[in-house]
Design a protein around this nucleic acid. Structure first.
Lengths: 343, 343
DNA sequence: TTGTAGGCGTTATCAG
DNA sequence: CTGATAACGCCTACAA
């Protein structure tokens, strides 16, 4: 590889001048500039990133640590981040699919000294773990993590409020026996959505038996399986709130195979509102999350923290959700047409 | 940030010894090693990546250049790559959502000097463009690109063969009037799948009018819209081959809304076989592509090229697909039950 | 407008 | 087993 020296020699100038051309720092005569550009192109010269960031102590790279995300959610998140980062000249160093704490921490360590800032999304990550594995000076934004320390910037989806609103809607339609298919155990989003569900049920005075809380892990397959358990229940719940759309889709598939109609026999609703939701049969009612925007927001928040550096106040920001009512939740249960709770 | 010097001073040794401890290179007494570890932990020392890669000329990073991919496809691809890379101690520098050639080239330049190898997936990328924007010594693997030069390693999905097999299956069921919803114009996969479709139709002696080739762009929405055009056709095609699953799902949704049944009135099939396909209503017949495995394979191919370095023979490898028959293609058209073509 | 020289944090090559 | 010291490629005062 050609270095700045090669270019300097070939163009008959000093390395300083070449550097100035490539950084637009300092004055260079047009003629010299032209000659240097020409030589650089011919030699296929490109500044060595490592050398550059050694002296400037800037990598122009943002580290992104993600759990084992699937489908649309992952894609949209990265898309939003990438676009926001690109806009400011940053690149993304991505490490994904972490489902264990030690694996996560290893990835964290591997990023040290390679990034200017870090976005971390993980159910397994807490302040202590972070403290131990990243330099104190590295700006960090926590995304959908359980923030038990106040030392970090954080951004979380309004999971609980979204779930609450959704369950409330089902209650408003007259449903009482509402089951939930939970997300992966230990996952922050999953836990929060479950809490929102419980709170709404409690507020409506509905006692929730354990069997209504069906375990899932955010995959279609787990949503499908959960329906097996649901069908064994008597009386059978009239509505199912899946903690994400993938599980809702799996659930609808299982219900159909069992000969039950959605929403006439069982109402089904999801969470996330992935693009595909509206094309389901029936179109899926869901809690909309603007995922790409969330990713972009995280990057912007990080860049801001990087700009302000030390004297910067950390805060925890919440990302709003909206209810999207389609057909999969129907207009209420068939059996008992009790008056809806006050709403 | 603490540097190796700080650790050396604090532990009362030379920087060389500290370096040896952190790289397991050369002998260090147990006692010294322990002391250095202890000091390093206390000072939160982490080797400076840039400095390290300046001297070793290794970044332990693989660059990944992707087009504007969506949903499951993108996620699975990255997942597969990340896992394969991690296994060998590499990280992924990802740049996605490139839908224009110049944007792509800019991203390419931004990666120079920051990666040890490159995986590029883009319809807009050809050998010439690549030559001009990456150093000649950088190992590269082209993924699903139109490889018109033979100078690069390449890996492509067997798009044409997969499409051919799928259309052949529809023909085998007795369909003659088979429409296709194409992928984004200019996209390599899209073009190849279209070619496979045309070839199969031609081989079966079916003349394909222009109107059967409905334009799409790989999104659900475009699949949905394509059905609008299809419904205006007389006679109406009895089957639709969507160039990916997202469009197939959009198409099924539109057909349903138009009061048509799948597969009784119109058969629908897709391409990719994303996890969600089997949970559709009806379950979607598709051409299976093991996407994560494809991503992993690309990384392995790149690592291999990096190992062998210069004296290494480039080849173009093809990634096989398989037909997955579910219910959305039915058992044949209703109207004309002509004997299936020889198969 | 241009050149010289010091140093960024590591690793590697020698001597001890 | 350990310690000096010269690179690695680049940027940036400071001088000219």
């Amino acid at each position: 590889m050609a270095t700045i020296k090669d270019v300097a020699r070939e163009a008959q100038v000093s390395v300083a001048t070449v550097s100035r051309v490539f950084n637009d720092s300092g004055p260079v005569s047009d003629e010299t500039r032209r000659r240097i550009r020409e030589v650089a192109a011919r030699l296929r010269y490109a500044p060595h990133g490592a050398a550059r960031s050694l002296i400037t102590s800037k990598t122009n790279t943002i580290g992104v640590l993600l759990p084992d995300l699937h489908g649309e959610f992952f894609s949209e998140m990265i898309r939003g981040m990438d676009q926001a980062a690109k806009k400011r000249g940053y690149q993304l160093l991505v490490s994904s699919s972490h489902d264990a704490r030690d694996e996560m921490e290893a990835a964290l360590r591997a990023m040290r000294g390679r990034v200017d800032g870090l976005i971390a999304m993980s159910p397994h990550l807490d302040a202590a773990s972070l403290m131990a594995n990243v330099p104190a000076t590295l700006p960090v934004v926590l995304l959908n993590c359980a923030v038990n320390g106040e030392g970090y910037d954080a951004l979380t989806i309004e999971n609980r409020r979204g779930a609450y609103a959704m369950v409330r809607h089902l209650l408003g339609l007259g449903h009482r026996a509402i089951a939930i298919i939970t997300g992966a155990s230990g996952n922050y989003d999953a836990a929060e959505r479950l809490r929102g569900y419980r709170k709404a049920m409690r507020a409506a005075g509905v006692e929730v038996p354990n069997e209504w809380e069906l375990p899932g892990d955010f995959t279609e397959a787990s949503g499908y399986r959960a329906i097996g358990a649901l069908l064994a229940l008597a009386p059978r719940p009239t509505a199912v709130f899946a903690a994400n759309d993938s599980m809702a889709i799996g659930a609808m598939s299982a219900l159909r195979e069992a000969g039950l109609r959605v929403p006439e026999d069982v109402a089904v609703v999801g969470f996330d509102d992935v693009p595909m939701a509206r094309y389901m049969s029936p179109p899926l009612t869901s809690v909309h999350v603007a995922i790409a925007e969330l990713g972009a927001r995280a990057v912007e928040k990080l860049l801001q923290a990087m700009d302000e550096k030390h004297d910067h106040e950390r805060h925890h920001q919440r990302f709003a959700t909206t209810l999207v009512i389609r057909q999969s939740c129907g207009t209420g249960p068939r059996r008992e047409r009790s008056p809806p709770p006050n709403d």
